[in-house]
Nucleic acid binder design. Sequence first.
DNA 1: ACTAAACTGTTGACATATCATCTATTGGTT
DNA 2: AACCAATAGATGATATGTCAACAGTTTAGT
Lengths: 152, 152
Amino acid sequence: MVTDPAIELVVNTVSASNALLRASRRVFRPFGLSEAQFNVLQVLQDADDQLSQRELSDILIVDRSNITGLIDRMEKAAWVKRQPAPGDRRAYRVALTPDGRRLWRQANAAYVQAIARVTVNLTPAQIKAVSRVLPVMERSAHALELELAAAE
Amino acid sequence: MVTDPAIELVVNTVSASNALLRASRRVFRPFGLSEAQFNVLQVLQDADDQLSQRELSDILIVDRSNITGLIDRMEKAAWVKRQPAPGDRRAYRVALTPDGRRLWRQANAAYVQAIARVTVNLTPAQIKAVSRVLPVMERSAHALELELAAAE
DNA sequence: ACTAAACTGTTGACATATCATCTATTGGTT
DNA sequence: AACCAATAGATGATATGTCAACAGTTTAGT
């Protein structure tokens, strides 16, 4: 079967991402965390608890409605809490709890270790080269998505 | 803040894959197809209708149980049909219908065109370089997944 | 100041995914 | 032949994701 290199690139990218996500599920499972929940912890940690659900959905690039249930479950687990957003009665300010911060620290350590494992067979030059190229394709994909969405 | 090049690589890979999947959702939507359903059509097309649900799940790297609902919906849409597997009363042989084959042809044309769009800013050398590196990381991720799954 | 538009979060319908568990078969060992 | 482990597919619980529609708030334009 003759395969166009561009098609191969797209297939390889999605395929590698799937493998990474499947492995990360195993990494996070001992902590009772999903990939999506780890991302929320990560983003909140980086942002110093200043985020509304809308900002979370923008950063994580998922629908607003998705954040509702995600934060519901994480709040029930006492890893985050919703507080009223000062000056806007529509919105919440989502904050890590001390438990959430502790969990992030542990899960992140395991995550960093796992990343070292999955990149051990790559040279620094390869890592940098791929890291430079992929965002170019990502931007094109995003532009295409917006264009097709607007054409509805 | 992400600074380690290896972490950046993983983030960029997953992020690019997400952008590709979101764009492909737009590409397939006019056909009433999801990404997962397109993949089923693609695999069946390549395999000349010789696949059981187990083989589909192995190729697509998803759980067996996932295939049940996927094929249920696609059979209801009359794109595929289940036939008894000769010599094994537990299994089915899943086949494309003429409608399914026609749909695959149209959706694939749109898909190929979309891929040309998202890779237009990359040089052939970049495309080949990334396509060579990503499978190495994918194999490491898969090995890690298996190792962690076995450790339960 | 008022109205219309835009925005935030929630809800419900649905698709996709995992996982554990079930039934029915198949196949290998003794 | 009889038994028992492995396999194929289905099912139900749960999580994540989209999308459309809604209520309540905020903001912009006149």
